[in-house]
């Protein structure tokens, strides 16, 4: 059964990274079947009709998998529903008459572009530094040559579910990217295929992460905000691997840190 909701929004508007920002208030009436982004579409159509520039926000698949979308909703990354990206949040989670505050991710590692849109390229730099297994096309052995125990494959998949949205950074009081980095790293560090580069990968990814983001102090906010409910266990595993890498590397010529 569709119900209509009357809402008051307070949305962060900022024309560019060097422009001053401010909150603007909008009122709207939408069906509770709408997704949060459809509600923003609706507000935008209304703004355009009144010759006002629409609110810029990142989004694409609207199925919770591409990781493009993500805003702070009443101070919570991706809003009130656990394990749910902004695009999959539906308005039935809000009461009629709600006042909703919508802001971009706020972190030094994610410079603002416009309104609710931020630059998350730092995540790509972390992956480029070592978030892969080096195997050129054609160099792979027959797929069933290396058995991977189901539990290991499942744990790797739990980590690999990360969509790279940046909610973990936005939710963290230190703007740390430990949940993202550890998930991407541990997927590969857990698998037998990932062992050859394990220590070097760990060092490179951690140290690149630290160029852009704050330090983890185990608040655990990231785990609460993560739309894929990735646990902070992976951060502990990353910290363990980092420590080991620092000792291991001296003796493992093959995995010495690059450069």
């Amino acid at each position: 059964m569709t119900n209509m909701l009357n809402l008051t929004l307070k949305v962060w508007r900022q024309a560019g990274p060097d422009q001053p920002g401010r909150f603007e208030e909008y009122t709207t009436t939408v069906a509770d079947d709408a997704s949060f982004l459809e509600m923003l579409d609706y507000v935008n159509e209304d703004l355009i009709a009144h010759d006002q520039e629409p609110i810029a926000f990142d989004h694409d698949c609207r199925e919770g998998i591409c990781g493009s979308c993500g805003v702070m909703i009443d101070g919570q990354a991706h809003g009130p529903q656990k394990g749910t990206a902004t695009c999959q949040l539906h308005m039935r989670k809000f009461a009629d008459g709600s006042h909703i505050t919508v802001e971009p991710w706020r972190a030094a590692g994610f410079p603002l572009i416009r309104d609710l849109s931020v630059d998350r390229s730092a995540f790509d730099r972390i992956i480029e530094s070592g978030g892969y297994i080096s195997v050129s096309t054609g160099a792979a052995p027959e797929a069933n040559m290396i058995p991977v125990p189901k539990d290991v494959a499942d744990a790797a998949m739990d980590a690999a579910a990360c969509i790279g949205c940046g909610a973990c950074v936005a939710a963290c009081p230190n703007s740390a990217a430990s949940l993202f980095t550890s998930a991407k790293m541990q997927q590969l560090n857990l698998l037998p295929q990932g062992q050859a580069e394990r220590w070097r990968r760990t060092e490179d990814m951690v140290e690149t992460m630290e160029e852009f983001f704050g330090s983890c102090t185990n608040h655990g906010e990231c785990q609460e905000a993560c739309p894929k409910e990735i646990p902070i266990d992976f951060i502990a595993m990353m910290n363990r691997d980092y420590l080991k890498a620092k000792f291991a590397n001296r003796r493992r010529g093959g995995q010495r840190k690059a450069g």
């Binding site: 195997v135 096309t137 054609g138 797929a143 290396i146 494959a153 790797a156």
Partner: peptide, 21 residues
């Protein structure tokens, strides 16, 4: 060849209990 390549890259395909795909 695609499956071989992806497994080598660390794509976590579903496994049976014996560890095979």
């Amino acid at each position: 060849n695609i499956i071989d390549q992806c497994v080598a890259q660390g794509v976590p395909f579903a496994r049976e209990y014996g560890g095979r795909l």
